[in-house]
Amino acid sequence: MRIDIISCVPKLLDSFFGHSILKRAQDKQHVEVYVHDLRDYATTKHRTVDDYAFGGGAGMVLQIEPIARCLRTLQAERSYDEVIYLTPDGALLQQRTVNTLSLAQNLILLCGHYKGVDQRVRDLFITKEISIGDYVLSGGELAAAVLADAIIRLVPGVLNDETSALTDSFQDDLLAPPVYTRPFVFEGHEVPAVLLSGHEANIEEWRHEQSLKRTAERRPDLLK
């Protein structure tokens, strides 16, 4: 898989992709991540990529020309499954969307900034718009990092135990059950005995019951 991220503040993403699981995924060549500086596609002396909004109002808008130049350069080199714009008014990110995107070969993630991008970018180039929640960030970089992380961890070979991702919250429309590790007793609080029984069927039944209970208490909407 290859993921290209377009940002006017690319250094915000350096640390995120330079550590832990995402770094190992790249080192093992399970995924390639390239972050492109939108200012490299500007034509002005000061590498300007934004301007005032037509009609007035507060805030700046990312211009279509540098974005189009960057997108067309990338698309001339390979075919992309999706060109995704991270925006608060996009479709709310869900696990089923992540599962589908994890099967793609090439993805472009466009990070918004300021008041967003010129609407014509969305009309002409974007194939999918995604939001990570009903709130506004300073830019789309964090949202792009969240989406990339959710996708990359599902790519075969990235996690040491591939079955781990299949038992995560939301994979079966349930929240994950409680988990425990050593010590067995902490200040009088013990690990549930069934988890130490070695009886696989009973353990799985307990975990499913706990998932149902936790989902009913915290996210009853999922059970619908």
Rank of each mutant, 00 (worst) to 15 (best):
P88T: 09
Q29A: 07
V49K: 09
V31G: 01
Q75S: 03
L103I: 01
T87K: 04
E65A: 14
E32Q: 15
Q26G: 11
L92P: 01
L38T: 02
R96T: 08
L103W: 04
L71C: 07
V31M: 09
R69P: 00
V61A: 01
V33N: 05
V31L: 09
L107W: 10
D81L: 08
Y80L: 05
K28I: 03
I67S: 01
Q105G: 14
R69G: 00
T100H: 12
Q105S: 15
P88N: 08
A68P: 03
P66C: 06
Y34H: 13
E32G: 04
R39N: 06
R96Q: 14
H46I: 07
L103D: 06
H30T: 00
P88Q: 09
R39L: 10
G59R: 12
V31I: 15
A104K: 13
G59M: 12
G90P: 06
A53E: 11
D50M: 12
D89Q: 15
T43P: 00
A76H: 14
L92E: 04
D89L: 14
F54T: 11
L86M: 15
T97H: 12
V49P: 05
L74A: 05
I64W: 09
N99G: 01
Q95Y: 06
A76N: 15
L71A: 06
R39F: 12
T73L: 05
P66T: 05
T43W: 09
